[in-house]
Nucleic acid binder design. Structure first.
Length: 195
DNA sequence: GGTCTGATTATCT
DNA sequence: GATAATCAGACCG
């Protein structure tokens, strides 16, 4: 076992930027439906792209709560997006952006209205629709039923890149994904590295 | 393959 | 009144 879940909340009682890359390869299920996390983004109270940057509001209340809580918000008036809160009372969180579908694929196909496995969970709004996660789960713990969370046991090749769809703090390389995964919301733009 | 735009509403200024 | 941690479909090449 390289990294086995100690089933503990302590895993999340650290800065989101530290937790985020370690989430790649772990498993997340809701009511038995879900898969392997292949793409996430970290958000922190100290940077303006974070919902917590301007302090606690009604919407962001969960982000200021306890580590391991699920923070769900409505995006663009249409979609749900889910995060896992890190660092008790300091309002950092990891946005779950893509899963590799593993469990309950038939349920995901029904909810999403399509069968291609690459279109089920490849995006934060898509994966919430596939799993059936809505505002109703806001504030629940990812460490308790009906959620199931387990860190991965395999070594994963993780890439850091820029976050997607934001207009502030765009230079922070706080998007983390599994290198080469076919299930990402968008391909990673590799920094032009000269040999 | 890529890029552009409309949909739709909670939230904050 | 503007903005937004997005998606799907249209369109272009």
């Amino acid at each position: 076992m390289a990294r086995q879940s100690h089933g503990g909340r302590e895993f999340f009682v650290r800065p989101a930027v530290e937790v985020a890359p370690e989430l790649i390869g772990s498993t997340l299920l809701f009511e038995g439906v879900g898969g392997r996390i292949v793409e996430v983004e970290a958000y922190d109270q100290s940077e303006p792209a974070s919902h917590s940057y301007r302090g606690e509001t009604l919407r962001t209340r969960t982000m200021f709560g306890s580590a391991g809580a699920v923070y769900v918000y409505r995006s663009y008036g249409l979609h749900w997006c889910m995060n896992i809160v890190c660092e008790d009372d300091r309002a950092s969180a990891v946005l779950i952006r893509a899963l590799e579908p593993l469990e309950g694929i038939a349920a995901m196909q029904t909810r999403r209205g399509r069968s291609n496995s690459r279109e089920l969970c490849s995006g934060p709004g898509r994966l919430c629709e596939a799993l059936g996660v809505t505002r109703g789960q806001d504030g629940d713990s990812v460490l308790a039923e009906p959620f199931a969370f387990a860190t991965g046991s395999d070594v994963v090749d993780v890439v850091a890149s820029r976050r997607i769809g934001i207009s502030k703090a765009v230079d922070l390389p706080w998007r983390f994904s599994e290198r080469g995964s076919r299930f990402l919301s968008r391909p990673v733009k590799e920094a032009p590295t000269s040999p």
